[in-house]
Amino acid sequence: MTQTAPTKQPNWFSRLAHPGVYLNWSAYLVVPLIIATIITFGIGLWFAFFNSPADYQMGETVRIMYIHVPNAWLSQMVYAVMAVSAIGSLVWRHPLADVSMKAAAPLGAAFTAIALFTGALWGRPTWGTFWEWDGRMTSTLILFLMYVGLVALWSTFNDQSKGARTIAVFTLVGAINIPIIKFSVDWWNTLHQPSIISTEGLSMPASIATPLLIMMLAFTLLFFTLHMVAMRSEILRRRANNLERRHIAQKMDVTS
């Protein structure tokens, strides 16, 4: 058992993860993260537009991939972040895990929306249609619906700390289901149409991999920056709520 007894000094992780302490140390990271994000985006976009050739199969539309692939990657990574936070919330009942879960949900929804939107705009010139019930697109769409459901779920709770554990349960049920959904959709897809169109097996020379990887790094940095700022404001929001509540309680104490 790794559970720390209350008398023992908490380990370094739980000390860093205490909301108040988190506010202190994360304050030093926000500005460097913003700068790193901007620089990486600058380099990535320069590569994407000025220093990369057109793909011999996709042509110039390969440039859409530099946005589409990072966001498709984020759509899954953000859910992984939420699932890990959900475990933290359920097992250790850690308030920072609740905050992390809540801050990640709208970000994941937005990145998934970008992935879908750019996917559609890439599909029109490449496949001749905005939407194709392709395995990946369909499971991304389902993932988007799950994000929207989670955002809606967060908004229905008045007492956020109580809602967190319920939402953590649902987040984990979703995390277990995502691979199954992916499998079932892929299976369904091969059943209904012999895969004429596939993004697999496309060769990727270094001239395309470089901007792609830089853009993936840039979007990942963007997520972590926004996530950190959103977590900080959620902690502040809870603090303000508590102060208001205490203030009202004190007032009622005085008058009575």
């Binding site: 459901g149 229905t156 079932s184």
Partner: peptide, 25 residues
């Protein structure tokens, strides 16, 4: 999950629908 909600009756079906996709398929 709906038990803990004060309002929002339709939210449970919306949450479950994506998870039910494999059953449908």
């Amino acid at each position: 999950i709906a038990v803990t909600l004060k309002r929002g009756g339709v939210i449970a079906p919306i949450l479950i629908m994506p998870l039910a996709v494999p059953i449908l398929i």
